[in-house]
Design a protein around this nucleic acid. Structure first.
Lengths: 148, 148
DNA sequence: ACCACTTGCATAGCTTGCTATTCAAGTGAT
DNA sequence: ATCACTTGAATAGCAAGCTATGCAAGTGGT
């Protein structure tokens, strides 16, 4: 019963994610951004004024995590939360000018980080790598049969 | 200047790591284990009595993170830290009986989680996937030329 | 022997993630 | 209209990362 950590997909995935995150964090720190805000920003740069629920659905992130992340983003002047007028429960999230202005540099930073980390792979390998990650993510565990 | 998150290796890596971690966490919770302890446990199951420094070197984890993780492990009765008699600075980490007994079930849990998550891949794809992750991890960023 | 430097850990403080719980606002059936 | 249920968000509390700092124990040069 041996277990070689460098043959374990989960172990490697964790390690890889930490490497990517550390690299991206360093690149976007000068912009005053942190990694956790990235997913939400990407969605909002695409369609501003989404509700918190919509963000949670689009990104596979727990509601509580999103609420906390948005609170930090509001504190840091990236978004403003406003109650929907039709439904008093829903919070709509609106980007600030500052956040809109950061789109270009932030995306560049992410692309640079990806490029550097994948520099050792051929074009074909990069495609395979992304495709395989999709395949893994699409595999639903027995616990969550349909989806979510 | 568009950015498709589902084409970004970093984004996918983060997402994958969260899925693996969540799955493993659920499997080892009944054992009273959490994911953060896994790397250290694997090393110690292999060679008990390593120093904290040695653990940090073997696992690509910051010293402060390791110190915190070991503190939690000690609190939870998984390890005992004892000062080295030759060098008063170094802490040697020793597994408790409880931790030694958990080796089998914990490794099974990790193997099960890997198997389930990779169930959608062929044997060949699994090999490719692991190989590609190694290749990415081996690619050192320009910032850290030699290694560490 | 002493002083500067190095080395190994610990601590403080923060982000990002999770589960569990609570609360307020809507909805529906009677 | 009322009461049970659902739905959207917030909060509490914890794990696991990180950077930055501090501190005590060794080491080396003079």
């Amino acid at each position: 019963m041996s277990f070689a950590k460098d043959q374990s997909a989960g172990y490697l995935a964790n390690h890889m994610a930490r490497v990517f995150a550390k690299g991206l964090a360093a690149r976007i720190k000068p912009l005053g951004l942190t990694t956790g805000t990235f997913p939400a920003l990407l969605e909002l740069w695409d369609t501003d004024g989404l509700t918190q629920k919509q963000l949670v659905d689009r990104l596979d992130i727990e509601q509580a995590t999103m609420a906390n992340t948005l609170a930090r983003m509001e504190r840091d002047g990236l978004v403003v939360r406003k109650k929907d007028s039709n439904d008093g429960r829903v919070q709509r999230i609106w980007l600030t000018d500052r956040a809109r202005a950061l789109r270009g540099p932030a995306i560049s930073a992410a692309q640079d980080e990806n490029a550097v980390r994948l520099a050792g792979l051929t074009q074909d390998e990069k495609r395979q790598f992304v495709a395989l990650m999709h395949k893994v993510l699409k595999t639903k565990s027995p616990k969550e049969p349909g989806d979510a």
